[in-house]
Design a protein around this nucleic acid. Structure first.
Lengths: 110, 110
DNA sequence: TCCATATATCATGATTTATTGATATATTAT
DNA sequence: ATAATATATCAATAAATCATGATATATGGA
């Protein structure tokens, strides 16, 4: 993960449809969701959705797998991990209390 | 934190200078850094830096405090916490293993 | 092979965003 | 009051981004 990767990723997340897609796929976890269904759920036209999925893919935030004629998309947990690690590197000037709350918030209900 | 807050924040982070500023302030922790010094370190003109600091401020990612004629800026740990919480809400479809690595990466050296 | 389904690519006009020189405001010192 | 320092705002141009209609590619079935 370098600065350009991170800029790509944040840029990808700074648009309504793409943020919606990513959050939806985060919720889907390992099950993922087909491109068509994502588009239906979010009410976005086919070519617009395709372009936006490509941006997220290129940013390393999602992955995909072909399933017959359909293509299924998944949140890329390694990608988001690398991004957040880059963003928060050497955080809080050695005062861990500042970060504890951040960490707590990012966790699923463990 | 709603969708628009999140879009503002990711948009703020999707530009080189602002990403640099945020990461610098994350490293500074509670000490923060004066606006002038930030500009010097990153090699950015005064008015450009001011505009970019304003964007980060408006996005809720940094805070500031006047100190005499100077203004000192700080990473807003509450802001980034809220943003990451929003992004990762209901993550991993009930399969915590997917998130563990993400959480580990966001932590400072505890 | 021919058709239907699912997704991707292309070209374009409309909107947004970034940087910069010039200038304004706020604070402190003399 | 005046000058110096630190930061913010304004106006304008240049560059990037977005959604869309039209079309292309890939897969599966008859």
């Amino acid at each position: 993960m370098d600065t350009n990767n991170a800029l790509n990723a944040f840029s990808a997340l700074s648009q309504q449809t793409r943020l919606d897609v990513f959050r939806l796929l985060i919720k889907c976890g390992a099950e993922g969701m087909g491109a068509g269904e994502i588009g239906e759920i979010l009410g976005v036209k086919q070519n617009t959705m395709s372009a936006n999925l490509a941006v997220l893919l290129n940013a390393g935030l999602i992955r995909n797998e072909r399933e017959g004629r359909a293509i299924r998309y998944y949140a890329d947990f390694d990608g988001i991990r690398a991004l957040l690690g880059f963003l928060m590197a050497d955080c809080c000037g050695g005062q861990p209390d500042l970060c504890r709350e951040v960490i707590r918030e990012v966790s699923c209900a463990l």
